[in-house]
Design a protein around this nucleic acid. Sequence first.
DNA 1: GTTCATTAGATTGTGTACAATTGAATTGTA
DNA 2: TACAATTCAATTGTACACAATCTAATGAAC
Lengths: 161, 161
Amino acid sequence: METQEIITETAGITAEDFPMLKLENQLCFPLYAASREVIRRYRPFLDALDLTYTQYIALMVLWETDGISVKSLGEKLLLDSGTLTPMLKSMEQKGLVERKRDGKDERVLRVFLTEEGRSMQERAAAVPGKIASCIPLNTEEAAALYLLLYKLLAALKEEKD
Amino acid sequence: METQEIITETAGITAEDFPMLKLENQLCFPLYAASREVIRRYRPFLDALDLTYTQYIALMVLWETDGISVKSLGEKLLLDSGTLTPMLKSMEQKGLVERKRDGKDERVLRVFLTEEGRSMQERAAAVPGKIASCIPLNTEEAAALYLLLYKLLAALKEEKD
DNA sequence: GTTCATTAGATTGTGTACAATTGAATTGTA
DNA sequence: TACAATTCAATTGTACACAATCTAATGAAC
Protein backbone atom coordinates (compact mmCIF):
# COMPACT_ATOMS: atom_id res chain seq x y z
CA MET A 1 0.00 0.00 0.00
CA GLU A 2 2.68 2.44 1.09
CA THR A 3 4.91 0.97 -1.59
CA GLN A 4 2.44 2.02 -4.24
CA GLU A 5 2.36 5.60 -3.03
CA ILE A 6 6.12 5.81 -3.23
CA ILE A 7 6.39 4.27 -6.66
CA THR A 8 3.65 6.27 -8.29
CA GLU A 9 4.96 9.46 -6.80
CA THR A 10 8.35 8.61 -8.20
CA ALA A 11 6.81 8.20 -11.62
CA GLY A 12 4.81 11.39 -11.11
CA ILE A 13 1.61 9.53 -11.89
CA THR A 14 -1.14 8.30 -9.62
CA ALA A 15 -4.05 6.01 -10.33
CA GLU A 16 -6.20 9.15 -10.15
CA ASP A 17 -4.70 10.29 -13.43
CA PHE A 18 -6.61 7.50 -15.16
CA PRO A 19 -9.94 7.30 -13.33
CA MET A 20 -11.49 5.28 -16.15
CA LEU A 21 -8.90 2.58 -15.51
CA LYS A 22 -10.05 1.96 -11.95
CA LEU A 23 -11.72 -1.39 -11.49
CA GLU A 24 -14.62 0.19 -9.64
CA ASN A 25 -15.41 2.43 -12.60
CA GLN A 26 -15.81 -0.46 -15.02
CA LEU A 27 -19.16 -1.87 -16.07
CA CYS A 28 -17.59 -5.04 -17.39
CA PHE A 29 -15.95 -6.15 -14.18
CA PRO A 30 -19.13 -6.48 -12.06
CA LEU A 31 -20.74 -8.22 -15.02
CA TYR A 32 -17.89 -10.71 -15.22
CA ALA A 33 -17.67 -11.18 -11.45
CA ALA A 34 -21.42 -11.46 -10.88
CA SER A 35 -21.74 -13.99 -13.66
CA ARG A 36 -19.13 -16.21 -12.05
CA GLU A 37 -20.54 -15.75 -8.56
CA VAL A 38 -24.05 -16.68 -9.63
CA ILE A 39 -22.79 -19.71 -11.53
CA ARG A 40 -20.91 -20.66 -8.37
CA ARG A 41 -24.28 -20.85 -6.61
CA TYR A 42 -25.47 -23.41 -9.15
CA ARG A 43 -22.53 -25.71 -8.55
CA PRO A 44 -23.74 -27.68 -5.52
CA PHE A 45 -27.10 -28.34 -7.16
CA LEU A 46 -25.57 -29.21 -10.53
CA ASP A 47 -22.86 -31.37 -8.94
CA ALA A 48 -25.66 -33.48 -7.50
CA LEU A 49 -26.87 -34.02 -11.07
CA ASP A 50 -23.34 -34.55 -12.40
CA LEU A 51 -23.75 -31.52 -14.67
CA THR A 52 -21.65 -28.43 -15.31
CA TYR A 53 -23.36 -25.09 -15.83
CA THR A 54 -22.62 -25.15 -19.55
CA GLN A 55 -24.07 -28.64 -19.86
CA TYR A 56 -27.12 -27.48 -17.91
CA ILE A 57 -27.90 -24.59 -20.25
CA ALA A 58 -27.29 -26.85 -23.25
CA LEU A 59 -29.85 -29.26 -21.82
CA MET A 60 -32.27 -26.37 -21.39
CA VAL A 61 -32.08 -25.70 -25.10
CA LEU A 62 -32.47 -29.39 -25.89
CA TRP A 63 -35.52 -29.74 -23.64
CA GLU A 64 -37.10 -27.05 -25.79
CA THR A 65 -35.64 -28.07 -29.15
CA ASP A 66 -34.57 -31.68 -29.28
CA GLY A 67 -32.54 -32.58 -32.36
CA ILE A 68 -31.11 -29.08 -32.72
CA SER A 69 -27.96 -28.68 -34.81
CA VAL A 70 -24.65 -27.80 -33.17
CA LYS A 71 -24.68 -24.55 -35.10
CA SER A 72 -28.14 -23.50 -33.83
CA LEU A 73 -27.24 -24.56 -30.31
CA GLY A 74 -24.15 -22.39 -30.56
CA GLU A 75 -26.22 -19.44 -31.73
CA LYS A 76 -28.53 -19.77 -28.75
CA LEU A 77 -25.76 -20.15 -26.19
CA LEU A 78 -23.27 -17.88 -27.98
CA LEU A 79 -20.70 -20.67 -27.98
CA ASP A 80 -18.69 -22.08 -30.88
CA SER A 81 -17.80 -25.61 -31.94
CA GLY A 82 -14.51 -25.42 -30.09
CA THR A 83 -16.48 -25.30 -26.87
CA LEU A 84 -19.51 -27.36 -27.89
CA THR A 85 -17.84 -30.32 -29.60
CA PRO A 86 -15.95 -31.60 -26.53
CA MET A 87 -18.86 -30.78 -24.21
CA LEU A 88 -21.39 -32.64 -26.36
CA LYS A 89 -19.04 -35.61 -26.62
CA SER A 90 -18.78 -35.70 -22.86
CA MET A 91 -22.56 -35.48 -22.56
CA GLU A 92 -22.81 -38.35 -25.01
CA GLN A 93 -20.36 -40.36 -22.87
CA LYS A 94 -22.59 -39.74 -19.87
CA GLY A 95 -25.58 -41.01 -21.83
CA LEU A 96 -27.47 -37.71 -21.86
CA VAL A 97 -27.52 -37.14 -25.62
CA GLU A 98 -26.85 -38.80 -28.94
CA ARG A 99 -25.02 -37.05 -31.79
CA LYS A 100 -26.19 -37.92 -35.30
CA ARG A 101 -25.33 -36.48 -38.68
CA ASP A 102 -28.26 -34.99 -40.57
CA GLY A 103 -29.19 -37.34 -43.43
CA LYS A 104 -30.06 -34.47 -45.76
CA ASP A 105 -26.87 -32.50 -45.05
CA GLU A 106 -23.98 -34.55 -43.75
CA ARG A 107 -22.17 -31.43 -42.59
CA VAL A 108 -24.81 -30.85 -39.94
CA LEU A 109 -24.63 -32.68 -36.61
CA ARG A 110 -27.87 -32.95 -34.67
CA VAL A 111 -28.06 -33.49 -30.94
CA PHE A 112 -30.84 -35.69 -29.56
CA LEU A 113 -31.78 -36.26 -25.95
CA THR A 114 -31.67 -39.83 -24.66
CA GLU A 115 -34.27 -41.02 -22.22
CA GLU A 116 -31.85 -40.14 -19.45
CA GLY A 117 -31.31 -36.66 -20.86
CA ARG A 118 -35.04 -36.15 -21.00
CA SER A 119 -35.63 -37.40 -17.48
CA MET A 120 -32.95 -35.04 -16.22
CA GLN A 121 -35.50 -32.28 -16.77
CA GLU A 122 -37.57 -33.51 -13.85
CA ARG A 123 -34.51 -33.91 -11.64
CA ALA A 124 -33.47 -30.34 -12.51
CA ALA A 125 -36.92 -28.87 -12.00
CA ALA A 126 -36.10 -27.66 -8.47
CA VAL A 127 -32.84 -25.91 -9.42
CA PRO A 128 -34.18 -22.52 -10.63
CA GLY A 129 -36.21 -22.08 -7.45
CA LYS A 130 -33.23 -22.88 -5.26
CA ILE A 131 -31.08 -20.41 -7.16
CA ALA A 132 -33.75 -17.71 -7.07
CA SER A 133 -33.95 -18.06 -3.31
CA CYS A 134 -30.24 -17.40 -2.90
CA ILE A 135 -30.13 -14.45 -5.30
CA PRO A 136 -30.45 -11.41 -3.09
CA LEU A 137 -32.58 -9.24 -5.36
CA ASN A 138 -36.29 -8.56 -5.06
CA THR A 139 -38.65 -9.18 -7.96
CA GLU A 140 -38.45 -5.64 -9.34
CA GLU A 141 -34.68 -5.55 -9.18
CA ALA A 142 -34.34 -8.96 -10.81
CA ALA A 143 -36.76 -7.91 -13.54
CA ALA A 144 -34.88 -4.65 -14.14
CA LEU A 145 -31.57 -6.49 -14.30
CA TYR A 146 -33.04 -9.08 -16.65
CA LEU A 147 -34.35 -6.42 -19.02
CA LEU A 148 -31.12 -4.43 -19.04
CA LEU A 149 -29.05 -7.54 -19.71
CA TYR A 150 -31.28 -8.61 -22.59
CA LYS A 151 -31.21 -5.11 -24.03
CA LEU A 152 -27.42 -5.18 -23.84
CA LEU A 153 -27.23 -8.67 -25.32
CA ALA A 154 -29.65 -7.91 -28.15
CA ALA A 155 -27.71 -4.82 -29.16
CA LEU A 156 -24.38 -6.61 -28.96
CA LYS A 157 -25.66 -9.45 -31.09
CA GLU A 158 -26.91 -7.04 -33.75
CA GLU A 159 -23.50 -5.40 -33.90
CA LYS A 160 -22.08 -8.65 -35.20
CA ASP A 161 -23.61 -8.03 -38.67
CA MET B 1 -38.14 -28.91 -34.50
CA GLU B 2 -40.84 -31.35 -35.60
CA THR B 3 -38.78 -34.12 -34.05
CA GLN B 4 -39.02 -32.43 -30.68
CA GLU B 5 -42.79 -32.18 -30.91
CA ILE B 6 -43.06 -35.88 -31.60
CA ILE B 7 -40.70 -36.93 -28.85
CA THR B 8 -42.13 -34.73 -26.13
CA GLU B 9 -45.65 -35.78 -27.08
CA THR B 10 -44.58 -39.38 -26.80
CA ALA B 11 -43.23 -38.70 -23.35
CA GLY B 12 -46.36 -36.76 -22.49
CA ILE B 13 -44.20 -33.84 -21.37
CA THR B 14 -43.48 -30.54 -23.06
CA ALA B 15 -40.99 -27.84 -22.21
CA GLU B 16 -44.00 -25.85 -21.01
CA ASP B 17 -44.33 -28.21 -18.05
CA PHE B 18 -41.12 -26.72 -16.66
CA PRO B 19 -41.27 -23.03 -17.58
CA MET B 20 -38.57 -22.19 -15.05
CA LEU B 21 -36.20 -24.42 -17.02
CA LYS B 22 -36.50 -22.35 -20.18
CA LEU B 23 -33.31 -20.51 -21.04
CA GLU B 24 -35.23 -17.28 -21.60
CA ASN B 25 -36.59 -17.38 -18.05
CA GLN B 26 -33.18 -17.52 -16.43
CA LEU B 27 -31.43 -14.51 -14.96
CA CYS B 28 -28.07 -16.24 -14.95
CA PHE B 29 -27.89 -16.95 -18.66
CA PRO B 30 -28.03 -13.32 -19.88
CA LEU B 31 -25.54 -12.47 -17.17
CA TYR B 32 -23.17 -15.16 -18.36
CA ALA B 33 -23.70 -14.39 -22.04
CA ALA B 34 -23.48 -10.61 -21.68
CA SER B 35 -20.30 -10.92 -19.66
CA ARG B 36 -18.65 -12.94 -22.40
CA GLU B 37 -19.97 -10.70 -25.17
CA VAL B 38 -18.68 -7.54 -23.51
CA ILE B 39 -15.30 -9.14 -22.85
CA ARG B 40 -15.24 -10.11 -26.52
CA ARG B 41 -15.44 -6.38 -27.35
CA TYR B 42 -12.28 -5.80 -25.33
CA ARG B 43 -10.32 -8.39 -27.25
CA PRO B 44 -9.15 -6.38 -30.27
CA PHE B 45 -7.97 -3.53 -28.03
CA LEU B 46 -6.31 -5.85 -25.52
CA ASP B 47 -4.73 -7.98 -28.27
CA ALA B 48 -2.98 -4.85 -29.43
CA LEU B 49 -1.48 -4.56 -25.93
CA ASP B 50 -0.75 -8.31 -25.74
CA LEU B 51 -3.09 -8.60 -22.74
CA THR B 52 -5.96 -10.90 -21.88
CA TYR B 53 -9.00 -9.51 -20.10
CA THR B 54 -8.00 -11.15 -16.83
CA GLN B 55 -4.50 -9.73 -17.08
CA TYR B 56 -6.01 -6.31 -17.82
CA ILE B 57 -8.16 -6.27 -14.68
CA ALA B 58 -5.23 -7.54 -12.63
CA LEU B 59 -3.18 -4.61 -13.93
CA MET B 60 -6.02 -2.27 -12.95
CA VAL B 61 -5.69 -3.45 -9.38
CA LEU B 62 -1.91 -3.13 -9.50
CA TRP B 63 -2.05 0.40 -10.90
CA GLU B 64 -4.02 1.28 -7.79
CA THR B 65 -2.21 -0.96 -5.32
CA ASP B 66 1.27 -1.91 -6.42
CA GLY B 67 2.88 -4.62 -4.32
CA ILE B 68 -0.47 -6.22 -3.44
CA SER B 69 -0.42 -9.81 -2.19
CA VAL B 70 -1.83 -12.61 -4.32
CA LYS B 71 -4.46 -13.18 -1.67
CA SER B 72 -5.68 -9.56 -1.72
CA LEU B 73 -5.60 -9.48 -5.49
CA GLY B 74 -7.74 -12.61 -5.47
CA GLU B 75 -10.22 -11.01 -3.11
CA LYS B 76 -10.59 -8.00 -5.36
CA LEU B 77 -10.97 -10.02 -8.55
CA LEU B 78 -12.80 -12.96 -6.94
CA LEU B 79 -10.18 -15.34 -8.32
CA ASP B 80 -8.13 -17.96 -6.48
CA SER B 81 -4.48 -18.94 -6.63
CA GLY B 82 -5.26 -21.69 -9.14
CA THR B 83 -6.15 -18.97 -11.62
CA LEU B 84 -3.80 -16.24 -10.46
CA THR B 85 -0.55 -18.18 -10.06
CA PRO B 86 -0.19 -19.17 -13.74
CA MET B 87 -1.49 -15.81 -14.92
CA LEU B 88 0.96 -13.84 -12.78
CA LYS B 89 3.81 -16.08 -13.91
CA SER B 90 2.91 -15.37 -17.51
CA MET B 91 2.75 -11.63 -16.74
CA GLU B 92 6.17 -11.92 -15.16
CA GLN B 93 7.46 -13.66 -18.30
CA LYS B 94 6.15 -10.76 -20.35
CA GLY B 95 8.00 -8.35 -18.10
CA LEU B 96 4.89 -6.63 -16.73
CA VAL B 97 5.33 -7.58 -13.07
CA GLU B 98 7.78 -9.03 -10.59
CA ARG B 99 6.78 -11.58 -7.95
CA LYS B 100 8.57 -11.34 -4.61
CA ARG B 101 8.04 -13.10 -1.31
CA ASP B 102 7.19 -10.79 1.58
CA GLY B 103 10.24 -10.57 3.85
CA LYS B 104 8.11 -10.39 6.98
CA ASP B 105 5.89 -13.33 6.05
CA GLU B 106 7.39 -15.74 3.59
CA ARG B 107 4.01 -17.30 2.87
CA VAL B 108 2.88 -14.09 1.18
CA LEU B 109 3.79 -13.36 -2.42
CA ARG B 110 3.66 -9.73 -3.46
CA VAL B 111 3.24 -8.55 -7.03
CA PHE B 112 5.09 -5.43 -8.16
CA LEU B 113 4.72 -3.57 -11.43
CA THR B 114 7.80 -3.21 -13.59
CA GLU B 115 8.40 -0.02 -15.51
CA GLU B 116 6.75 -1.69 -18.47
CA GLY B 117 3.75 -2.70 -16.40
CA ARG B 118 3.42 0.85 -15.17
CA SER B 119 3.73 2.38 -18.62
CA MET B 120 1.02 0.03 -19.84
CA GLN B 121 -1.42 2.25 -17.98
CA GLU B 122 -0.91 5.04 -20.48
CA ARG B 123 -1.20 2.67 -23.41
CA ALA B 124 -4.46 1.31 -21.95
CA ALA B 125 -5.92 4.71 -21.16
CA ALA B 126 -8.00 4.78 -24.33
CA VAL B 127 -9.57 1.33 -23.83
CA PRO B 128 -12.47 2.20 -21.48
CA GLY B 129 -13.66 4.96 -23.79
CA LYS B 130 -13.55 2.69 -26.81
CA ILE B 131 -15.51 0.02 -24.95
CA ALA B 132 -18.05 2.52 -23.64
CA SER B 133 -18.70 3.70 -27.17
CA CYS B 134 -19.56 0.20 -28.34
CA ILE B 135 -21.79 -0.65 -25.38
CA PRO B 136 -25.28 0.12 -26.59
CA LEU B 137 -26.71 1.50 -23.35
CA ASN B 138 -27.33 5.13 -22.48
CA THR B 139 -25.91 6.67 -19.33
CA GLU B 140 -28.97 5.99 -17.18
CA GLU B 141 -29.21 2.38 -18.27
CA ALA B 142 -25.51 1.77 -17.74
CA ALA B 143 -25.73 3.36 -14.29
CA ALA B 144 -28.77 1.28 -13.37
CA LEU B 145 -27.07 -1.89 -14.56
CA TYR B 146 -23.90 -0.99 -12.67
CA LEU B 147 -25.82 -0.45 -9.43
CA LEU B 148 -27.83 -3.65 -9.74
CA LEU B 149 -24.72 -5.69 -10.45
CA TYR B 150 -22.88 -4.25 -7.47
CA LYS B 151 -25.89 -4.83 -5.24
CA LEU B 152 -25.99 -8.43 -6.42
CA LEU B 153 -22.25 -8.85 -5.99
CA ALA B 154 -22.16 -7.29 -2.54
CA ALA B 155 -24.93 -9.55 -1.30
CA LEU B 156 -23.37 -12.64 -2.83
CA LYS B 157 -20.04 -11.84 -1.26
CA GLU B 158 -21.62 -11.44 2.19
CA GLU B 159 -23.28 -14.83 1.84
CA LYS B 160 -19.85 -16.41 1.83
CA ASP B 161 -19.46 -15.84 5.58
C1' DG C 1 -20.66 -31.48 -64.82
C1' DT C 2 -16.43 -29.26 -62.99
C1' DT C 3 -14.56 -25.79 -60.17
C1' DC C 4 -14.59 -22.39 -56.64
C1' DA C 5 -16.48 -20.40 -52.58
C1' DT C 6 -19.07 -21.36 -48.58
C1' DT C 7 -20.63 -23.86 -44.68
C1' DA C 8 -20.58 -26.99 -40.47
C1' DG C 9 -17.93 -29.33 -37.28
C1' DA C 10 -13.65 -31.00 -35.55
C1' DT C 11 -9.09 -30.10 -34.04
C1' DT C 12 -5.20 -27.65 -31.96
C1' DG C 13 -3.23 -24.61 -28.83
C1' DT C 14 -3.50 -21.03 -25.27
C1' DG C 15 -5.50 -19.14 -21.26
C1' DT C 16 -8.41 -19.01 -17.82
C1' DA C 17 -11.71 -20.90 -13.79
C1' DC C 18 -12.02 -23.69 -9.99
C1' DA C 19 -12.15 -27.77 -6.77
C1' DA C 20 -9.05 -30.41 -4.20
C1' DT C 21 -4.69 -31.32 -2.41
C1' DT C 22 -0.03 -30.24 -0.98
C1' DG C 23 3.70 -28.00 1.46
C1' DA C 24 6.00 -24.44 3.71
C1' DA C 25 5.50 -20.67 7.01
C1' DT C 26 3.19 -18.73 10.78
C1' DT C 27 0.18 -18.40 14.75
C1' DG C 28 -2.29 -19.82 18.84
C1' DT C 29 -2.19 -22.41 22.83
C1' DA C 30 -1.16 -25.50 26.44
C1' DT D 1 8.72 -23.88 23.83
C1' DA D 2 6.54 -27.78 21.45
C1' DC D 3 2.86 -28.61 18.41
C1' DA D 4 -1.61 -28.50 16.44
C1' DA D 5 -4.31 -25.51 13.63
C1' DT D 6 -4.30 -22.06 10.25
C1' DT D 7 -2.79 -19.46 6.33
C1' DC D 8 -0.89 -18.58 1.73
C1' DA D 9 0.54 -19.95 -2.56
C1' DA D 10 1.53 -23.67 -5.72
C1' DT D 11 0.12 -27.77 -7.95
C1' DT D 12 -2.96 -31.13 -10.17
C1' DG D 13 -6.76 -32.31 -12.82
C1' DT D 14 -11.05 -31.17 -15.23
C1' DA D 15 -13.82 -28.24 -18.05
C1' DC D 16 -14.70 -24.58 -20.46
C1' DA D 17 -13.86 -20.36 -23.98
C1' DC D 18 -12.11 -19.04 -28.11
C1' DA D 19 -8.92 -17.93 -32.04
C1' DA D 20 -7.06 -20.23 -35.84
C1' DT D 21 -6.85 -23.89 -38.85
C1' DC D 22 -8.41 -28.01 -41.15
C1' DT D 23 -11.56 -31.19 -43.57
C1' DA D 24 -15.50 -32.86 -45.64
C1' DA D 25 -19.89 -31.68 -47.71
C1' DT D 26 -22.65 -28.56 -50.13
C1' DG D 27 -24.00 -24.99 -53.29
C1' DA D 28 -23.32 -21.67 -56.97
C1' DA D 29 -21.41 -20.17 -61.40
C1' DC D 30 -19.78 -21.07 -65.46
